[in-house]
Amino acid sequence: MAGMGAVPATQSFLAGEKVTASKLTAATKTPLDFLMNPPRCGVFAATGIPCANGTSTLITFDSESWDTDAMHSTATDTSRITINTSGQYLVTFYGRFPSNATGYRQLNFRKNSNGNPSGGSTMSTIALAAVNGSQTFVTRTFELNCMSGEYFELFATQNSGVSLTLDPGQRVTGMEFRWLGN
């Protein structure tokens, strides 16, 4: 169901109008099919992303868990999830840093930033103190109103004093979007 672009409109029936298969499909099946499989996209880094000390790093995503609306490409602009169907989305982003007790770990979620950590608009930032003796998992989930054509990227920053590599894997370092409604 790639490239939906818009929520399907329902069809009305006029009093006395004959019910046809095509009109009944447009009135019920098409909108229900959309609601049963709404626009959604889950991407992740299958390989570790090196993050230099004190430098904001653009996270690229080389793998997809799902993508029902052509929101991500594994070949072009792999850091982006692009909205094709406007509406309210449930957004989750996350990254796991390896064990290191020094400093903080931060993820900055930006709109239309063109790969620039100070470009576009910050939509959400979360920073946590490093966890001593364990990995530091940074995550946030929230609802966001999105317009068709907007795209979102994720930047990681850490200040451990050394370069750290974000842990790879599905549900380890990635982003997820799910359309909720208009």
Rank of each mutant, 00 (worst) to 15 (best):
I83L: 10
S124A: 13
G87K: 02
G54E: 14
L90H: 15
V131E: 00
R105S: 12
M147D: 13
F109K: 09
I81D: 02
Q135L: 13
G95I: 07
R80E: 13
T60H: 07
L144C: 11
A101V: 06
G133K: 09
S65T: 15
S118T: 14
A46D: 15
T122C: 09
G115D: 09
S79P: 00
R110E: 03
N132I: 12
N53A: 05
V91R: 03
S121R: 06
E150R: 01
F109W: 10
S134C: 05
A46F: 14
S118E: 12
T125F: 00
G149Y: 03
T102L: 10
Y94D: 00
G95C: 13
S148W: 11
F155I: 02
L58E: 00
H72D: 12
R140E: 05
Y104S: 15
S73P: 09
T68M: 03
F152Q: 06
F152P: 03
P168G: 05
T157G: 08
V162W: 01
T76H: 04
A75N: 12
T60L: 10
T173G: 05
T57N: 06
E143L: 10
N114R: 02
G48I: 09
T102I: 10
D62M: 10
T102P: 08
A52M: 06
S113I: 04
D77M: 12
A127F: 04
Q135K: 09
T125A: 02
T136H: 04
L58D: 07
M71V: 07
S56T: 10
S113T: 00
F97N: 10
T57Q: 07
M123L: 15
T157F: 14
S56N: 13
Q158K: 07
E153I: 01
L107K: 10
Y104V: 15
T47R: 09
I49G: 04
R140K: 13
R171S: 13
C146S: 02
D167P: 06
E64D: 07
F142H: 07
T141K: 11
S73V: 06
G133R: 07
P98W: 02
N100P: 04
T78F: 01
Y89N: 07
T136S: 12
D67T: 01
R105M: 14
Q88L: 14
N145G: 13
A45Y: 05
D62A: 09
T78Q: 07
R140F: 09
Y104K: 15
L58K: 00
E150L: 02
F142I: 15
A156F: 02
Q170C: 11
I59M: 01
S121M: 12
L90P: 02
Q158A: 02
I59D: 07
T122N: 14
S148I: 13
V162I: 15
T57H: 04
T173D: 11
S86I: 01
F155Y: 13
M71P: 06
L107N: 03
P50E: 04
A45D: 10
A127M: 13
Y104R: 14
N116K: 10
T125V: 14
Y104L: 14
N132F: 05
T136V: 03
G133C: 03
L90S: 14
A52T: 08
L164C: 03
Y94E: 12
W66Q: 08
